[in-house]
Simulated scan of single mutants.
Amino acid sequence: MKAAPTAGNGRAVVVTGASRGIGAVSAVRLSSEGFRVYAAVRAARDADEARTLGLIPLRLDLTDAGSIEAAAHQVTADLADGELYGLVNSAGIVLPAPLEHMRAADFRHQLEVGLTGQLVVTQAFLPLLRAARGRIVNVSSVSGRVASPFIGAYSAAKHGLEGLSDALRRELRPSGVHVSVVQPGAIATELPAVLMRDVEAAYAELPPVARQHYGDTFLRYGRALAENHARHGSPPETVARAVLAALTARRPRTRYAVGAQAGSVVTASRLLPDRLLDWLLLRTLERTAAGRSTGRR
């Protein structure tokens, strides 16, 4: 009896940021759908974990051009037909801080991981993608449409990724390579715990003048952002489904807004005046922070 066809049909895809969160869940989902998944991770232990899940580990550091080049060489040597069907750029970090007092080195690192690294990875794999007339899926965020206070560096990287994706889509259209953006809203991964830890660490390092200007607002809003993801976040499988759709749909959409609050945030960014949007966002953060401080859920 002939086996039923699968969505992936054995085609190769590279997924960055596959050690945890959205990247890890997407890699496993694509593998279950019949794709041959190269899971790009930084640490050896994560490579071992990927292997146990039936993925092909790919050591890759977005801040190291040599690492990216070596990963591309590995995939090129491994693919007999020289074709890579998909690239999913899902790696990312969040470095919280008031922009006025953010260290320039931290800001550059945020952009290196969240924007520049995405381009360098895409450049490295484009020859293989072009041969397959494949697809690129960039995992952005609703923060790429509406910037929240105190994660401005992250929002800057995601705004940049949105623009980069638009330009790539138009430049690569003659080559038959399609570019989609997935815009997650609140997602229940390890992000809330990590963001809470990083906000508190950054707050502890603020100089006295920063605390004078921002009081406890940075700490309260940062905790509120984390709380929102923890309380209302959709499971990461929601994003994985959108990634799968972007890779397999006959006519993939240019953007997929997915997860809790994503649709409403994107719609608000299109329809509301900036000052009204500012008021709504800050009011929501205040209410979440107030609810957290009183123990309300």
Rank of each mutant, 00 (worst) to 15 (best):
A201Q: 14
M196D: 14
D216E: 15
L225D: 00
N228Y: 13
G215P: 08
Q212F: 15
G215M: 11
A202I: 04
F218R: 00
E227C: 12
R220W: 06
Y214I: 09
H213M: 14
G215A: 06
E190G: 10
R197F: 12
A210G: 10
H213N: 06
A202F: 08
F218P: 01
A188F: 12
V199C: 10
G222C: 07
V199E: 09
T217M: 13
I187G: 01
E200W: 03
E190S: 13
A226F: 13
R211F: 08
A188T: 00
A204D: 14
M196I: 04
G222A: 08
E227P: 00
T189F: 13
P207H: 07
P207R: 05
R197S: 15
P207L: 12
P208L: 09
L191E: 09
A204C: 10
A202L: 05
E205T: 13
F218N: 00
L191G: 00
E200P: 01
L195G: 01
R197P: 01
L191V: 13
R211M: 08
R223S: 11
A224F: 11
V194H: 06
H213K: 11
N228S: 09
I187A: 02
R223H: 15
H229R: 02
L195N: 00
Y221E: 04
H213R: 13
L219S: 03
R211V: 13
L225P: 02
A230V: 01
R211W: 08
N228V: 08
A201F: 08
Y203V: 01
Q212T: 14
R220Q: 13
D198V: 03
V209H: 11
V194E: 13
E200V: 04
D216F: 08
L225V: 12
E205G: 01
Y203H: 14
A204F: 12
L206K: 00
E200M: 12
L225C: 03
A186V: 02
L195M: 07
E205F: 05
V209R: 12
A188W: 12
E227K: 10
N228H: 04
M196K: 14
V209F: 12
Q212H: 14
P192H: 07
L195W: 05
Y214G: 03
I187W: 09
Y214F: 15
A224W: 10
Y221A: 02
Y203P: 01
A226K: 03
H213F: 14
A202M: 11
D216L: 11
R220T: 00
P192S: 06
L219I: 11
A201Y: 05
A226N: 03
P208Q: 05
E227S: 13
A188R: 15
A226Q: 06
T217A: 14
D216V: 14
M196G: 10
E227I: 09
A202N: 01
A224E: 06
R223Q: 14
V209N: 08
P208S: 06
F218T: 00
A202Y: 04
V209T: 12
G222K: 02
Q212K: 10
P208Y: 05
H213S: 08
A204Y: 08
R211I: 10
A202D: 02
E190N: 10
I187R: 00
G215E: 06
F218L: 07
R220P: 02
D198F: 08
V199N: 03
L206Y: 09
G222T: 05
Y203F: 15
L219H: 04
A186T: 01
P208T: 00
M196V: 10
A224G: 05
N228L: 15
